[in-house]
Design a protein around this nucleic acid. Structure first.
Lengths: 204, 204
DNA sequence: AACATCATGTAATCGGTTACATGATTCA
DNA sequence: TGAATCATGTAACCGATTACATGATGTT
């Protein structure tokens, strides 16, 4: 099955019931490097999932006047997660905008070349750091998505969970570091292509 | 600007005028690891690009009875490529179905775990080989998309082009090898999680 | 009083996927 | 004669992006 926003929601709601807003927050602060989604996507997917009976909506107070909606998994929703987990993984089509662009740096002005490559490297260096930090909070049991499960899982199961998540976030960090390294190699190649180019500014 | 099928077409038509079928073939056999597109996408994108005046359509004979359409870049199309090449690269949102799945292997039956991981590894090993071979045909000047340009570019420009493409395809191969290695590490972790699991069959 | 954050949504559009549909040409 | 390849498209659908839209609550 093709993985989509629906599965992200199923994954997060297994941890605990949440509002759409909380789903969007948890996605942004934690799952985003593996699977990203905007709040629009999440709210519309929640509506469909509720129609299909995979999630249930409860109304809660927010402040004095307003209401918010707390979603939780139904048994059908838990099943849907189990089914997804057992299916073959459908890979996404290859789409690599950076390397598609970089295949043409021989015809691109050097200032653009170095600007794009440096941005790429920096983005992945930061991502790697963020993922390594996340891996640590998993293994230490400090991650909010782990803490929410404490007491509701056996110690052994929780230990396996921590180690598995930490391992995957470390692998995602390794991937980001690979991308940064690849960017550096491409940069070195670009310097051979444009040996005379001297960047004027170093101000960031 | 967001990279899409349109840019793939602009890139390929810079080499030489082609039919939609040839664009789809060249994508499949060569560009696919960097950017993939189906023939449906290509035909519909060609229509839009023609409306916008970025490509021009000429009618040619196919066999006795039928006609085919050969598309070429207009000056506006060449400009659009130049603009795309000079813009900041807009990264795609992170979507990594394999690691999103693998973050849950602690709750997944071991036969599914090893089946999915092994498929992932094998797919990337094959991709890496394919990309290394492509890199070689670039550097040797044997690649069809290079040969089509011979005589229409200066020797130096052609040399830079060959080296740049070969470098990028080698980087894409390195990325595929990284993914295979990452898969192997995840597999090793899974063997710690499921020490008692013995696969019954080795028949592929 | 102003700003950040919490909280919820809709709508237009875009780009991509999948399935459907057709038929000629070429080679074994 | 049959299969592979060449060749072109349409249509329904899906999922994601972007912009629009609103308003309460909590903090400085």
């Amino acid at each position: 099955m093709t993985t989509s926003t629906r599965h992200l929601i199923l994954i997060l709601l297994r941890v605990q019931p949440m509002t759409g807003y909380e789903l969007a927050q948890n996605t942004k602060i934690s799952v985003d490097p593996l699977w990203s989604a905007t709040h629009s996507q999440i709210y519309t997917a929640l509506q469909k999932l509720e129609e299909e009976g995979l999630v249930a909506r409860e109304t809660a107070k927010r402040g004095e006047r307003m209401e918010k909606y707390v979603y939780s998994l139904t048994p059908a929703g838990r099943d849907a997660f189990r089914v997804w987990l057992r299916e073959p993984i459908k890979p996404l089509p290859n789409r690599d905008p950076f390397r598609l662009w970089a295949a043409h740096i021989d015809e691109c002005p050097p200032e653009v070349v170095f600007r794009n490559i440096d941005e790429y490297i920096q983005r992945h260096v930061e991502l790697a750091e963020r993922l390594d930090r996340a891996a640590l909070t998993f293994i230490r049991g400090e991650h909010p998505l782990i803490q929410a499960r404490m007491g509701r899982m056996s110690d052994e199961a929780l230990e396996r969970l921590k180690r598995t998540r930490a391992m995957i976030y470390r692998e995602a960090a390794a991937k980001a570091r690979f991308e940064a390294e690849s960017g550096r190699r491409i940069r070195a190649f670009a310097q051979e292509l444009y040996p005379d180019y001297e960047p004027n500014e170093y101000d960031d």
